[in-house]
């Protein structure tokens, strides 16, 4: 299988008053080309920070280290700012969390389209660019005539979300990264956006990397799933395995915690305990304080990855026996 994105030992830290907060802890992850890969995990486990580590879009107090972030044969970690700028949106488009606030309040949607285009390409006329934008807006069920001439405040949250998704396709990127594309929207809008994304994936064969804490969305869209906990990736597998034969105890608890996806809603069990502090993470396996299958080794040594069936899992349940 071809991997469009290969992240090697990525570390993201924030400088805070108390010291440094390691929110992405030595993460390695490969994103297969042409598929939809989902990154799931509780809020605050470092998903957005991981994305920020890819295209270096961290806030000023954020710091990155890695052994390389490879996009095809380009090491993004080594690029100059200008080289990176050319890749952003042209080849990798990232739709951030709270995309409703991603638009400049004093620019019309049409201006957003044009400035984005002109930042990367020259040559095409305004009409050609706008014609393409119209096509994309129609694809996300918006009325292009109205939308292109509107300011962001004149659109609803769901419309803005769809505008950004349309805008993300304007340069035909090779990889589309979406951070919580459905949060903060009503359920109806959520499902139309998911349908839309599926349609885009189907029609364009576009590789997507989808971040969410919403498992039903994952079940509906993803081919592969990576499970993140307290700054670490703990399990990676195809979507079937994750939902039916997950190896990592946390994954199973996470799936049980969602209502009405599979089985009886009364089966739903919240995960006991609370996520650990990233400032003083637990020793050994970060999940051990909450893990029902804890063993003596778990609080001493962090587990490496083990191949178990179709899963890649970092858990001593599958390793210390040998």
């Amino acid at each position: 299988m071809n991997h469009i994105l290969r992240i090697k030992n990525l570390i993201v830290e924030y400088a805070v008053r108390e010291g440094s907060l390691r929110v992405v802890n030595n993460v390695s992850l490969d994103v297969p080309e042409g598929k939809i890969t989902a990154l799931v995990g509780e809020s605050g486990c470092g998903k957005s920070s991981l994305l920020d580590g890819i295209l270096r879009t961290l806030p000023p107090n954020g710091y990155i280290r890695s052994n390389g972030v490879w996009f095809k044969d380009i090491n993004l970690a080594r690029l100059s700012n200008e080289e990176l700028r050319r890749i952003r949106w042209e080849r990798i488009a990232v739709v951030f969390q709270a995309a409703q606030n991603s638009l400049n309040p004093v620019l019309k949607i049409g201006d957003h389209v044009l400035e984005t285009y002109h930042a990367h390409r020259k040559g095409e006329s305004k009409d050609e660019i706008l014609a393409k934008a119209r096509e994309l807006l129609e694809m996300v069920n918006l009325d292009p005539k109205q939308v292109l001439n509107s300011y962001p405040y004149e659109l609803s949250g769901g419309m803005k979300q769809r505008v950004i998704i349309a805008l993300s396709l304007i340069l035909d990127p090779e990889l589309l990264i979406l951070d919580e594309p459905t949060s903060a929207l009503d359920t109806y809008t959520q499902s139309t956006i998911i349908d839309m994304l599926k349609k885009i994936h189907r029609e364009k064969g576009l590789t997507m990397f989808l971040v969410t804490h919403d498992l039903p969305v994952v079940a509906e869209m993803a081919d592969y799933v990576a499970v993140m906990y307290a700054g670490k990736i703990m399990e990676v597998a195809d979507v079937e395995t994750i939902f039916y034969k997950a190896k990592y105890p946390y994954t199973n608890l996470l799936i049980k915690a969602i209502p009405s996806l599979i089985g009886d809603p009364s089966d739903r069990k919240p995960i006991p305990g609370s996520p650990p502090s990233l400032l003083n993470p637990p020793s050994g396996c970060v999940f051990h304080p909450r893990c029902p299958f804890r063993r003596p080794i778990c609080d001493k040594k962090a587990p490496p990855f083990f191949h178990v069936d179709k899963s890649l899992v970092a858990c001593w349940l599958y390793g210390d026996t040998k």
Partner: peptide, 22 residues
């Protein structure tokens, strides 16, 4: 600190454009 500035960076806009128009 607004999201739309970060989004503008992600869209690969030039620094000058972000500083003036944003």
């Amino acid at each position: 600190e607004e999201d739309f500035v970060k989004a503008a960076e992600a869209r690969g806009l030039h620094e000058r454009r972000i500083l003036t128009a944003y």
